[in-house]
Design a protein around this nucleic acid. Structure first.
Lengths: 192, 192
DNA sequence: CGATTCTTTGAAAACAGTCAATCTGTGTGG
DNA sequence: CCACACAGATTGACTGTTTTCAAAGAATCG
């Protein structure tokens, strides 16, 4: 499923065959079984990771053992811990596979190198970063201003595909409520 | 106080005198009195805005009339509504001055133009965006995983300078609780 | 099928929000 | 310089929401 990565890139930017070979040379494919970790708390994250197939999640675990999902990463999306990546600090995130998945990994060093050779790739990264920032801002806005019920509604609107694909308690974790609360919200909404 | 903008830039990147003149040519200085709007809900945001002096805040107002602060922008920081800027859509944010302020404005068109001529400036923007994204991620993490009390503590740790500079109800608005709740949190913390 | 994970339910407790009143400090105009 | 107005902070009583804990039911995986 390496091809889906190349297809993704071709769809976003124009690439010569040489450039594709260049990317191919530094990319490695990693298969993950359901529940397998891509990154575990305490490790240092060193890659750019593209989800070629499957579905991952990034989350932290607090003192009480509760998981808080920061991001979902379905196929054709990127994942990782940029904070650990740029600061070379141990990650406080876990990333694991919700479904069997295939991930394309490129180390930061290699990625930076080919970005110099393929400026368009650099632009693409910046565009993705830019978009991610906008999405974060929206999410912050939602969490600080909406009620739990509205946060759930907003989640369904923004990510209908994800909502159907992950267990409900993960949605609860993403929007920041307990699974029980989400159950009750759903029951209440259903009655209306 | 135009100079503080130039100083900020010089501190971050190397600029020739010609490049500085180029920037100077497209930048305008706007003075804001306390409580004055830089951007009002419904308008389309068209600038990159650098706070040369003073202190601004970006916030939204919900149906119940409550304000939710998305960002603080003290001097030497940037502000604006990137979503409105890139999508050319009416903003749902308000940005106003908490203190008398001076803001350097550069329209997106001009900014993009000089970014091509000064690639370092482009890099700077991307670096800032990158950092903003990391900060957003941290903030999301805090809001979904911490109790109100810990969110407040975390705010004090991260932004001690801001905490001393803005009224308490704005901190409450930023962390997503009512002013009354924040009072009670503080009283409880003080006892310990 | 059996085991595990996920969802639902109930009751109690903890938490945060609302509303209204009071207190405090600041600054402005007379 | 004082008085007053105003914005901000605090308090109390009450309400509403969310969490917690425990247990049972449903769905899914191996």
């Amino acid at each position: 499923m390496f091809e889906s990565f190349i297809n993704y890139l071709k769809d976003k930017i124009n690439l010569s065959n040489d450039e594709i070979d260049l990317i191919r040379a530094v990319a490695t494919l990693k298969k993950l079984r359901r529940h397998q970790y891509l990154l575990q708390e305490g490790e240092i994250w060193r890659y750019n990771a593209f989800v070629a197939s499957g579905f991952l999640r990034a989350y932290s675990v607090d003192d009480k053992g509760q998981e808080h999902i920061l991001n979902f990463a379905p196929e054709n999306h990127w994942t990782g811990d940029r904070e650990s990546l740029v600061n070379h600090t141990p990650s406080h995130l876990n990333i694991d596979a919700i479904e069997d998945s295939e991930v394309v990994l490129i180390t930061k060093e290699n990625f930076d190198r080919i970005c110099i050779q393929i400026p368009q790739l650099n632009d693409l990264v910046n565009a993705i970063l830019h978009k991610s920032f906008l999405m974060s801002q929206r999410r912050i806005h939602d969490i600080i201003s909406l009620s739990a019920e509205d946060k759930y509604r907003s989640f369904l609107e923004k990510f209908p595909a994800i909502a159907q694909r992950v267990p409900q308690h993960m949605i609860a974790s993403y929007i920041g409520v307990t699974p029980e609360t989400l159950t009750r919200i759903r029951r209440k909404s259903a009655k209306e």
